[in-house]
Structures are given as structure tokens and as C-alpha cells.
């Protein structure tokens, strides 16, 4: 019953000085009626002004989390704030400043794209009807739908529908944009455009919270990421911090794997692994040229030597298991 709060007076007081977080959740948990735990004990901290990538395979609880953030479903336990305002009680204060795309676009099929946006705007009691027309035009232009504004929604392609969904989230200036899988159904060109759009929006000072099951699609625009797996948060932080946490490895291509292992271990390197014709180890602080000299010095036939920095993609796959598999 926690969402049954709107009968109370809307929160009139200005939002308490945010602790610098556009979204903060504390132990947010959702257990569905069947007993299935979709999200467990989630502590998200989305810094204001960040572009926050919310990653995880399909079924890892991303959409359930977003629905809880927006007050569409009530958490079984835990709490959260949006733009410093406690939710769900502060929905009337917080939500007008939040634009969202939730689990794909949804509009009335027999209305035109523009008429659909007009309907969204009419539902927002804090939006000024006198500027409605211009704001709708701007939003359509921003996503490149101006030419198709009068077309019925049911005649839109998947990519156009997705664009209209994004346009709806941009009907007003937002302090926070929550985009659930915004690149779904878009071709590579469309995906690039969405990334550019996210960059522009973030440049205006809007915090962007963007979920995806494909790291590669949003990696380039994110400043922060969180990674979900089966409803739990497995990593969170700035991209630089997460990259720093992943070990740089040295890889030696050689037929003398036994000798090479010995040398690397002798140098104090950890996590030494090998196959038939290559050996690798975590480099730590050791200069790679020292390892090379040492290897050659003891007569290991070095065919190739490389310093490997695991990509965020590798890290993502490692954290989430199979990457593309649907988790329980």
C-alpha cells in the first residue's frame, strides 16, 4: 500500500538539499507474489550530472528497478529518493522533473505521433499548455521525427516508435532522464544518434540513467556504471574506478610454457595461467620490459609478448556470467 499516498498533500517544501545524488536507493527489494525475488537489497547511488549505465543481462531486474524508481510498483522493502525527494510520497514533486522510457515505447496506435505527445503533455498538470505546441515540436525535432509527426503511430517502424518514446521523455526540461533500453530496435545509425542525444542532454546538466543489456552500446557515453545480475548489484562506480580495478595482464606467446611459467612466478606475478603455446599472468606494477628481458635472459623462446587490458566488456561478461543468457 505504499503507493497509496497521493491522497495526502503533495510535498510542497523544496526538495531537501540532495546529497549529490539524482537517484539513491537503500536496500530496495522487490519480491513478486510468486515469491520470486526480482530485485534484492539494491543500493544504487547515481551522482547528479552523471551518465549512469545500468547494465545487466535480460531478466536481471533492471526494468523492475526502474518501475520501482518511478513509483509504478511498490518495493517489498527498502526506500529510495529521486532528485533528493523521498519516493513514492514525493511523486508529485519529483516526477515532473523526470523523463522516462520504460520497457519500450507505448502509445495509442490510431493517434499520430504528435497527437500522442499532446496527450502525454495534457496528462502533466504542471506543464504549461501555452507552450505545449512548441515543446512538442522541439521534442519531435530532437529525435528526428518532425517529418513523420502526423503519421499514425501504428504505421511507425520499430525505430520510429522508439524515437517517439524518447521524444515523450523530452517534452520538458528534465533534471533526470531514465531510459530503459533506449537503443532497442534501432539500427547502428539510430544507436549512434541516441548516444549523441544522451551526450547533448547530459551536457545540459541533466542526469541520465540509461539501462542496457549491451554494454558496448552505451559504454562510450557513460561516466558511471552499475552491473546487475539476478536481481543483485555486482559492481557500481565510475568507469575509471572500475577499469582500474581490473587487472592488467601480460601474455607471452611461447612454446616453452613451462619455463615461462617459472620465470613469471619467479618475478612474483600472480594468477599465472597457461595453455599449450601461451602463458599469462597479472602484471601488477611490474614493467613489462623487465619480464621480457628476464624471459629472454633465461632462454625462453618468446614469439610474442603483449600487455592486455581487459575491456569493460570482458569485465561485464565476467560479472554477469554468460552475458546474453536470461537469468532465472
Amino acid at each position: 500500500m505504499t503507493t497509496a499516498t497521493e491522497a495526502g498533500a503533495p510535498v510542497v517544501a523544496p526538495p531537501p538539499p540532495a546529497d549529490g545524488h539524482a537517484i539513491a536507493t537503500h536496500g530496495l527489494t522487490k519480491r513478486f507474489r510468486g515469491g520470486q525475488v526480482a530485485v534484492a537489497d539494491l543500493d544504487l547511488a547515481v551522482p547528479q550530472g552523471s551518465v549512469f549505465g545500468f547494465l545487466g543481462p535480460n531478466g536481471s531486474g533492471k526494468t523492475t528497478t526502474i518501475r520501482m524508481l518511478l513509483g509504478l510498483i511498490s518495493p517489498t522493502s527498502g526506500s529510495h529518493t529521486l532528485l533528493g525527494v523521498p519516493m513514492p510520497d514525493g511523486w508529485a514533486t519529483a516526477l515532473p522533473k523526470v523523463g522516462s522510457l520504460i520497457e519500450g515505447p507505448a502509445f495509442h496506435p490510431h493517434l499520430s505521433g504528435e497527437a500522442n505527445l499532446r496527450r502525454c503533455d495534457a496528462a502533466d498538470r504542471t506543464a504549461d499548455p501555452r507552450t505545449s505546441r512548441r515543446r512538442i515540436g522541439d521534442a519531435l525535432e530532437r529525435v528526428g521525427l518532425t517529418a513523420a509527426a502526423g503519421k499514425r503511430y501504428k504505421a511507425y517502424s520499430l525505430g520510429m516508435k522508439q524515437r517517439l518514446g524518447i521524444a515523450a521523455s523530452l517534452l520538458r526540461h528534465r533534471e533526470l532522464l531514465i531510459l530503459d533500453e533506449p537503443t532497442n530496435g534501432l539500427d547502428p545509425q539510430g544507436t549512434r544518434e541516441v548516444r549523441t542525444l544522451i551526450r547533448e542532454i547530459a551536457a545540459d546538466g541533466t542526469t541520465v540513467f540509461v539501462s542496457s543489456h549491451l554494454l558496448a552500446e552505451i559504454e562510450q557515453v557513460c561516466t558511471h556504471v552499475a552491473v546487475m545480475r539476478t536481481g543483485r548489484l555486482v559492481a557500481q562506480g565510475s568507469l575509471d574506478d572500475l577499469r582500474a580495478g581490473t587487472g592488467v595482464r601480460i601474455r607471452v606467446d611461447t612454446p616453452d610454457t613451462g619455463a615461462a611459467r617459472g620465470v613469471l612466478t619467479g618475478l612474483g606475478l600472480t594468477d599465472v595461467r597457461g595453455s599449450d603455446d601461451e602463458v599469462s599472468a597479472e602484471l601488477g606494477g611490474l614493467p613489462p620490459e623487465r619480464a621480457c628481458a628476464e624471459l629472454v635472459g633465461v632462454g625462453v623462446a618468446v614469439r610474442g609478448l603483449a600487455v592486455v587490458r581487459p575491456s569493460l566488456e570482458d569485465m561485464f561478461v565476467e560479472l554477469t556470467g554468460e552475458g546474453f543468457d536470461v537469468d532465472g
Binding site: T3, E6, G71, L72, W91, L95, S100, G104, A106, D124
Partner: peptide, 18 residues
Amino acid sequence: GIGTLRYLLAVPAGRTRL
């Protein structure tokens, strides 16, 4: 049924008002 309810509530239209 067509999913527009979640967007009306996220706008927010307000549940009682809607």
C-alpha cells in the same frame, strides 16, 4: 493493455486524478 498506463503514471498524471 497497450502499455500507455505506465507512461501516464510516470508523467505523472496522478493515480486519483487519472
